[in-house]
Amino acid sequence: MIKIENLNKYFGNLHVLKDIDLHVKSGEKLVIIGPSGSGKSTLIRCMNYLEEPSSGTVYVDNQELTRKNKTQMAKSTSAMVFQQFNLYPHMTVLKNLTLAPVKLQKIPADKAKEIAMEYLIRVGLADKAEEYPHTLSGGQQQRVAIARALTTRQKIILFDEPTSALDPEMVQEVLDVMIGLSKENITMVCVTHEMGFARQVADRVIFMDEGKIIETGTPEHFFKNPENERTKIFLSKILH
């Protein structure tokens, strides 16, 4: 579903991604872990062209992702959930959810509203449909953001540290939504340090350090016998 070949990314002189090769299968749940600054965000943002690769190729749904088709691909294939939620603050929750379906996918307004309400029910926030985002808690905002990503019914959802900006007591409500989502045939790529979540849903975990993928395995592998020295050090910090 996502195939990355020889991907390099520079920010000026900073070599952030180094010869990355990665193949995410259709329906796979992939978790990316690694220390701060290792390039996790940059990698996942190359998957929908929010970052432009310096060299190498990204294929999404068997098509090469380019500057030309990035908007089209975003419209038809992938959705993203951000650390900072990034809801549209001047629109109600419902309007946040229906904007793309109505304006981009040309779904009639009442039909889009119906779909949006379905997903709001799913994330447990149907009663907030007419509220503005700033009246919601962080956890609620992130659940709305996930619902927004779902309403366009894409094959791929990218999560970049969806729970890192949340107060601890709100993390689980968001993870629960994501766990629910993982039961579907959707392709999920998720940057997160929630190893409990990884253990529960991930088919595969990759560990990144200094712009490279240096260890790949099942969640169990990372819990029981991580091989690389840096992986061990990193895991010892996040697993207590």
Partner: peptide, 11 residues
Amino acid sequence: GQVEAAESQGF
């Protein structure tokens, strides 16, 4: 971030 969210939706 809002601009990126909109871009990620295909606007």
